[in-house]
């Protein structure tokens, strides 16, 4: 209400009231202050990332001393090389990659019909369908970890990377549907109708019209599914008991409690594991930011 009254009462332009005597200088000072706060904020936010990278390449004699130095005192790549030589990190990363690939493919394949249902079709039970998706997305994984594990034991699907990817997909399909739905929503009805006139079926209109116009939405779905799978520890820790089948997240987490893993190796593992998601994020950030926030709020 407050919003609309301001808009209406002030519609006719009036002469601005007298401002302070040196507005320019004051504004400059204000801007400088804002810049300073932003720089400090960026430094604070980036500090943990900086610290992870620093601890990886810091020569060993500096990493376990107090006070820890703020700057790099040399450049030591021993952490990375010894990590790959002494631990099966390479194969763990490969497993994470396979699981993520399964998750991404299944999520995209199921999110497309789901998004179409939410965006273009009205049918009995559509409200229930939407609620089901939403609930699946918002439910904590820990709430079904026990029955899910029992179910997978019955099926002999534990220690199976493909099956693990399917579980991640089940948790990522709902968000994928919402993201893609908001992309589909932006395609005008006239465009789709024109397709029908040209002899397109409804299914054909998804493939020929909606999907090509929803590329950034598709990219966002891929990213979300990839991150969801790459990031998980909970399900991997319950479903994978064979160390040679570990995903990277699970394997690296077990380093925490192992005495023979050096601190700098731990940090190196962190850097290596973060590399792919960060690179992905940086390369698609522009396209995805919109799709992600839109998807989260439908």
């Amino acid at each position: 209400m407050a919003v609309s009254t301001v808009a209406i009462t002030s519609a006719p332009a009036r002469t601005p009231p007298v401002r302070n005597p040196w507005p320019r200088r004051k504004r400059k000072a204000k801007e400088a202050f804002r810049y300073a706060v932003i720089v400090v904020l960026c430094l604070v936010v980036l500090f943990p990332v900086y610290w992870m990278v620093l601890s990886t390449f810091q020569p060993e004699k500096y990493t376990l001393t107090y006070p820890p130095p703020f700057w790099l005192h040399g450049f030591n790549t021993n952490a990375i090389s010894s990590l790959f030589n002494q631990q099966p990190v390479a194969s763990w990363l490969f497993h994470s990659f396979i699981v993520s690939a399964v998750t991404v493919v299944v999520t995209v394949v199921l999110a497309i019909p789901g998004a179409y249902l939410l965006s273009r079709l009205r049918f009995r039970g559509s409200g229930a369908f939407a609620f089901l998706l939403l609930f699946t997305q918002l439910m904590p994984g820990a709430m079904i970890i026990v029955p899910e594990l029992e179910w997978f034991r019955t099926l002999h699907w534990t220690n199976n990377l493909f099956a693990l990817g399917l579980v991640y997909a089940a948790f990522n399909v709902p968000l994928g549907c919402w993201i893609l739905k908001s992309s589909f929503d932006t395609v005008p009805n006239e465009v789709v109708d024109a397709g029908y006139v040209d002899g397109c079926t409804q299914l054909g209109s998804i493939r020929r019209i909606l999907l090509p116009l929803s590329r950034s939405g598709l990219v966002a779905v891929v990213i979300v599914a990839f991150f969801g799978s790459w990031n998980d520890y909970l399900f991997a820790s319950a479903f994978l008991t064979n160390r040679s089948l570990y995903t990277a997240g699970l394997g690296i987490a077990t380093f925490i409690s192992q005495q023979n893993v050096q601190l700098y190796q731990l940090m190196a593992a962190g850097v290596v594991f973060s590399l792919l998601p960060v690179l992905l994020y940086v390369s698609v950030q522009r396209h995805v930011a919109r799709g992600l926030t839109a998807g989260a709020l439908k």
């Binding site: 904020l41 960026c42 936010v45 980036l46 943990p48 990332v49 610290w51 992870m52 601890s55 990493t63 376990l64 001393t65 107090y66 820890p68 703020f70 991150f227 790459w230 990031n231 520890y233 997240g249 690296i252 987490a253 380093f255 925490i256 601190l263 731990l266 940090m267 593992a269 962190g270 850097v271 594991f273 973060s274 998601p277 960060v278 992905l280 994020y281 940086v282 950030q285 930011a289």
Partner: peptide, 29 residues
């Protein structure tokens, strides 16, 4: 804005590792 969104891209496990090291009582920063 890109910089400020980076924590979102760092997975959970490396986040825990880094904070555990940073918060270490003996040699944490």
């Amino acid at each position: 804005r890109g910089i400020l969104a980076i924590p979102w891209a760092i997975p959970d496990v490396p986040t825990v590792l880094t904070f555990t090291i940073m918060l270490d009582p003996n040699f944490g920063i």
